[in-house]
Design a protein around this nucleic acid. Structure first.
Lengths: 217, 217
DNA sequence: GTCTATAAGTGGATAGAC
DNA sequence: GTCTATCCACTTATAGAC
């Protein structure tokens, strides 16, 4: 009970260390941040870090764990067909896209996305997370969604894997474009708004490409 | 003349240092490589590095300079319309795509591409190079090309900037996918072959989307 | 140009007092 | 749990002999 109270009224030291580490890692990269800098930013002695974590790598591992928990899709089964029939393909895809991008507007999620992007190349655990927990399931969901669109007669017959690739992989480009290429160009919120905008155009392009022309037969 | 002979029969120490640095940086990232490691790999004393470069950052700057020279498009004006009329849009785009990807098969170019990808986020000069010398001109070229395709009646009327974005930005995804996400998954040559394959499918998808149906009017 | 030697600093990590 | 003090490996970089 004492623990519960403390965790509400004041973040525990362990969580503070983790959050500061996320922030610093996302700004300068894992290699460029020292245990000393983390401790100084939290406001504790560097030796105290070792009461909570085995070392620097252990902090990163803990971040990755919290990251998996954060991005794990809830047990909610999305009623794809119901929403598809209610809104039609274009509105549906925009809603689905915004469900993800709007979350990125939370600064807390933003720094995590940045961290994923910049550590992707030299942290195998993050790479595995990105591939297995993010890209793979997303592709599966979009394959099912495009399959459904075909079954409902909204779009022409195609290989659903091709459509999923064409649609979603471009979204991954937007993700990199935002968090790697343009990250420091403009204020963060503007960056995400640009991303949402680009995604809308992309959705329109894809659907125009595969829509069944209703005036031809 | 003595210099010329030496540069042919044996690479100078300065060039050796730069090449070893490219290799190590591309494997472990700039931060994780020390002057000592570079010197050891070249086979000279670490102090000798300072006879050729002011320091570690100077080596990186020299790499970026050679990189700009390497990727700078030659003065050759590509006769877009001639080739377009000769081969048609699909073959033309595949040839243009392969002109780039085949170069990446040279290991020398491969490590440079890897280096660009992994230092993009925390080296401003590389980021500027990527944006100004690579992405920007490529978009311009593809805008002109798609404009030409419309003028020649190959594809429907669209905004050429939209087409360039849809086509080329997806290629940038393939670039990141190759050099960041999957880099260590399979042998390098296989990686590039996958990339060429994916690009072919993408070209076909884009052209199917915008092609003028010749049987309708 | 290359080496030895060394400076001057930063890194992660631990022992032990409070 | 937090602190002081300390260890030691490793970093960039320079001075000066050959």
């Amino acid at each position: 009970m004492k623990d519960m109270v403390r965790s509400v009224e004041k973040k525990g030291t362990k969580e503070q260390i983790r959050d500061v580490a996320i922030d610093l890692f996302s700004k300068k990269g894992y290699d460029a941040v020292s245990i000393r800098e983390i401790a100084r930013t939290v406001g504790i002695n560097e030796a105290s870090i070792y009461n909570h974590y085995k070392g620097k790598e252990d902090i990163m591992d803990s971040i990755i764990e919290s990251l998996i928990a954060e991005f794990n899709p809830g047990p909610e089964e999305a009623p794809v067909e119901v929403l598809l029939e209610k809104y039609g393909p274009e509105v549906y895809m925009n809603i689905a896209g915004k469900a993800v991008t709007e979350r990125m507007k939370e600064p807390h999620i933003g720094v995590i996305c940045r961290l994923i992007c910049i550590e992707l190349y030299h942290n195998e655990k993050i790479r595995d997370f990105f591939k297995m927990t993010f890209m793979e399931p997303s592709h599966r969901i979009w394959e099912l969604t495009f399959r459904k669109m075909m079954d409902l007669g909204y779009i022409k017959e195609y290989d659903e894997r091709l459509l999923s690739t064409e649609f979603f992989d471009y979204c991954i480009f937007l993700f990199f474009d935002c968090f790697v290429i343009r990250y420091d160009e403009v204020p963060y919120e503007e960056l995400i708004d640009n991303m949402i905008n680009s995604m809308s155009k992309h959705i329109k392009f894809i659907l125009d490409a595969v829509r069944i022309e209703e005036d031809s037969p």
